[in-house]
Design a protein around this nucleic acid. Sequence first.
DNA 1: AACCTGAATTGAACTGAACTCAGGTTGATC
DNA 2: GATCAACCTGAGTTCAGTTCAATTCAGGTT
Lengths: 207, 207
Amino acid sequence: MATRIVEPEAGPRSKRAAILAAAVDCFGETGFEATKWSTVAERVGIGQTALYHYFESKTHCLLTIMRLELQRSHDKFTEATEGVEDPTEALRAAVRAAYDVSDQEVLQMRILHNHMDLLSGTRKSKREEAERVEARKLVQLVERNWTNLLVRGMSMGAFPLRDAQLLGSGVLGLIVSVWRWYRPSGPTPLSEVSELIEGACVRMVAT
Amino acid sequence: MATRIVEPEAGPRSKRAAILAAAVDCFGETGFEATKWSTVAERVGIGQTALYHYFESKTHCLLTIMRLELQRSHDKFTEATEGVEDPTEALRAAVRAAYDVSDQEVLQMRILHNHMDLLSGTRKSKREEAERVEARKLVQLVERNWTNLLVRGMSMGAFPLRDAQLLGSGVLGLIVSVWRWYRPSGPTPLSEVSELIEGACVRMVAT
DNA sequence: AACCTGAATTGAACTGAACTCAGGTTGATC
DNA sequence: GATCAACCTGAGTTCAGTTCAATTCAGGTT
């Protein structure tokens, strides 16, 4: 049912990965609107028009980055929580997993959450729309992950009963709000953020 | 010290307010990038170029909307909390105030938080940069409002001691994360959201 | 009433970045 | 070493945002 998009298998001299990496850097540092599509081409070392061999548009590239990051987040959540039966421990593990990211992934998170609104409206071109739909599915999956975690905790009596959906999006909102301001070069280390948010989440859902 | 920008005093036939209102509708519903500047002009009933009599650019208009919304938020916070000496009650009042908004203000919130990243980098044109700087100042003011509330609660023994700045941006992040998904036409009434988040915030900062 | 001023407006032209097109190059494979 | 798809390019198109010179309009002055 989770129809994962087939990644175009990379021909040996494909620059797709290099383009994605360069785009993540540019979009993450400078912002999507502010970075010229041609700058990404330059950084990869190809002409601007070559980009269109790999991506239908600048936006198609952005949506691809977003989908990949969502896939990663979802996988990480699953990996971190599976087999942890105590709900509170599962919640803690999920939060820690959310902040166990590389600098590159921080950028991807920033890009993702700065352009969530793109996922609302339908896109005109085929491949853009495919990525958008897939990304939306993943968003819902991630939301369900968190909601289910809370539902399980509530039914097991570990968390008091509340609107799990609403509380879930609250927890998720709290966690991702960090990507708005966090900078690897900033004064606050991510480990500190992780600890504080972990505690906050636990208190939020507990008594 | 808080150098509030002097609103250009409205000549009797100024369309500035009408443009702002139309822009909030368009930017809020369709998204800033997706709405054509000329559409805003149409909705107001003037030619596109007339817009430039009031705003230096499409972005200048956006930044103005953002600043106005920040000013409103700040005022509302102050009004809701001043004179409330019990920290928990002040926190509750602040959260309730944050969600005591009209449908128009929901749109403005959405616009504001979808384009926070604009406030990071400097702008080229004068008036855009003026709005940006002012908006940034207001963001810091709002953050300080929440941090101070927590600091006061901690020093009074109402909240356990924690990194107030980090926790403050957490609380704020949780509160504004709602504007990402909330729709007045949606299934969840804002009052319900307000209650759940109010409780969550209190638990987050308390024991 | 004739005149003046500045705010408000406009149509036509400009700009620049995203994108298209019609072909050319490369290199893995047979 | 011929083939063919993957890969790439320069020249040109498009289109939304923007500029500009010129015009209208409303309210006040003489």
